[in-house]
Design a protein around this nucleic acid. Structure first.
Lengths: 217, 217
DNA sequence: CCAAAAATGGACCTGCAAGTCCAAAACCTG
DNA sequence: CAGGTTTTGGACTTGCAGGTCCATTTTTGG
């Protein structure tokens, strides 16, 4: 029945019977839409733009995304969310020494500096987030994975004696992630990278110094 | 010529000749639109919704906002931006002791906890931000005022000897603001207030402890 | 009380972008 | 190659939200 089938499941229903060619087209649409959205913002992108940019027709769009724009945006969101973490590798998974933390920090700065004002997820959160219930889940999942990766790094440093053992890794990683997100947000709105730098450096320095003074429960 | 006139200027052109009644109607539209947007999100709100919610007609909308939706959204953004800082008073302008910082922190938590998922500015930034050039300026201005208020608080604490003098107030306030923004963003996407709490508490604690170890230039 | 200006109501227009439909081509399997 | 399935192209429909327009009412200063 199914020959070269690639089941790509997202929300509830699964897509079936995708030919190799079909899968390629589908991927091309997602990638093209993602690029277009990064460039112009979510609500500035019409389906027609995606068609033009990817060399596809309306029939194809609705063939691969029967629920239309919403489903496409969901796929794009997933695509972009995965990209965010991938872009931080292998640093993010190797926070095992202070130079390694520094390298990760540098990668983040470099990446967002290059990206500039084009943040796909902020837009997708704001706009897809309310419409599609699934987009919320995608972003939440990304944040959770991100924070957990940081927490793993902190715990590793603790086990090596480089971070005080009384630091709450979960709270510290939550704070650091918040600083990153806010830094990116401020980069988006003000165009300056200062906040991201300051948040990263000060929070990491605080971990280095003595970390979480448990003055609060 | 002009009797009871209230000139409300925003971007370039100024609105002229506003009767008392007119000003009231205009204010009612802005407030109603803001409420509607907070409730449903920017792109879910149609002009018709605003009309229904404020008891106005299309003629009125375009009478007070000749440039249509864009101009209205700009006015709403300004309205909401002002509100953000107002909601933090008088705490934000009185960061003169550690209990005062704590009170400010508590107010922030309380406020955003109550507000929950309804963040007007995030949506307005994402959607109006790209369209209208002015919206970007509004948000930037808000962030700048916010950060400056925090910096003033830090400097005050330094002059009182409660924060180490080698702390860079600008960098520290930038980091704290980033933590707040990220915390709110994460509240929006995950529904949990943990990140905001962690960012606030850890950053303030770090200021309390010894602050900015100037290991980096 | 009058004339000018502002405020209001609501019918109407218009463009556009999402979504529908179907017929033709390409493709796979046996 | 035959028959079914997937893929593709593009014309057509549709709904709707933003914006225009003007006629009517209200307000205002003198």
């Amino acid at each position: 029945m199914d020959l070269q089938v690639q089941n790509l499941r997202y929300g509830g229903a699964m897509t079936r019977a995708l030919t190799r060619k079909g899968a390629a087209t589908r991927a091309r649409i997602v990638a093209g839409a993602a690029a277009e959205i990064r460039e112009r913002g979510v609500d500035e992108v019409r389906l027609e733009d995606v068609m033009a940019h990817t060399g596809t027709s309306k029939g194809q769009l609705f063939h691969y995304f029967p629920d239309g724009k919403e489903e496409l945006l969901l796929a794009v969101a997933q695509h972009e969310a995965d990209q965010v973490l991938t872009d931080q590798e292998p640093m993010l998974s190797n926070l095992t020494s202070w130079p390694a933390w520094q390298a990760w920090r540098d990668r983040l700065i470099e990446r967002y500096l290059a990206q500039g004002v084009k943040c796909p997820l902020n837009g997708l959160l704001g706009q897809t987030g309310r419409r599609a219930p699934g987009a919320q889940a995608i972003v939440t999942g990304l944040m959770w994975r991100w924070q957990e990766a940081i927490a793993v790094g902190i715990r590793h440093m603790q086990s090596a004696g480089d971070i005080a053992p009384d630091v709450d890794a979960d709270r510290a990683s939550a704070a650091l992630l918040a600083g990153i997100q806010g830094g990116v947000l401020l980069l988006l709105s003000t165009g300056r990278i200062d906040h991201l730098e300051a948040a990263l450096d000060l929070t990491i320095d605080s971990l280095r110094a003595g970390g979480d003074s448990p003055s609060r429960a």
